[in-house]
Amino acid sequence: MERSAAQDRRKAVEQMLEEAGGPVSATALARRFSVSRQIIVGDVALLRAAGADIVATPRGYVLGRRPAGVERRVACVHAPEEMEAELNAIVDAGGEVADVIVEHPVYGQLTGILGVRSRYDVQEFLRRVAADSARPLSDLTGGIHLHTIRCKDEKTFQRIQNSLEKAGFLLDM
């Protein structure tokens, strides 16, 4: 059976994601392969259906590799205008904000992939929120949400928790 140009492109997309040092946008992939962004979105859907662990983040696609270190969840609460301060508290203490999770009354658990690792990432995320006039998922739950935090070790995670607690962002029931 001969391989089609589309199959070759999908294999090349997966290889680019494997070799990338960070997220790769659908737009960048579309330019690289001289196809539309929608073709790339379809390619990624087919790759996922075939078992590829590709995650869509606000900055582009990444392979869903589990990094070394610690991964924990924290329960937070804050007003929408405090989102920047919360994200900065986490990244300044050495963490990555992998996602945000809320409990929706109809849909159940909703997860938004963030992949925020630095103040630059925080600013880019906030820029996209503003550009799209988007509301944070935590608006659905009165500001209550979970974050999956990744960091290098337990000591770093404790520093992150302390930073969030000091800022008043940890949910305290």
Rank of each mutant, 00 (worst) to 15 (best):
Met1Ser: 14
Ala6Tyr: 04
Gln7Leu: 12
Asp8Ala: 08
Glu18His: 13
Ala20Val: 07
Val24Gln: 02
Ser25Gln: 09
Thr27Asp: 13
Ala30Leu: 06
Ala30Glu: 04
Phe33Tyr: 13
Val35Lys: 03
Arg37Asp: 07
Ile39Cys: 13
Ile39Glu: 10
Gly42Trp: 06
Gly42Phe: 04
Ala49Asn: 13
Gly51Leu: 07
Gly51Gln: 06
Gly51Glu: 07
Ile54His: 03
Val55Trp: 05
Val62Ala: 00
Arg65Pro: 06
Arg72His: 12
Arg73Glu: 15
Ala75Met: 13
Cys76Asp: 00
Cys76Phe: 04
Val77Gly: 01
His78Glu: 05
Ala79Phe: 10
Glu82Met: 12
Glu82Asp: 13
Glu84Pro: 00
Asn88Phe: 09
Ala89Trp: 01
Ala89Gly: 03
Ala89Tyr: 02
Ala93Pro: 07
Glu96Pro: 00
Ala98Gln: 06
Asp99Ile: 12
Asp99Met: 05
Val100Gly: 07
His104Met: 05
Tyr107Met: 11
Gly108Glu: 09
Thr111Tyr: 01
Gly112Val: 08
Gly115Glu: 01
Gly115Trp: 04
Val122Ser: 04
Phe125Leu: 11
Arg128Glu: 14
Arg128Cys: 02
Asp132Pro: 00
Arg135Thr: 14
Leu137Asp: 01
Ile144Val: 15
His145Ile: 05
Arg150Leu: 11
Arg150Ile: 12
Asp153Tyr: 02
Glu154Gly: 10
Ser163His: 08
Phe169Met: 04
Met173Asn: 13
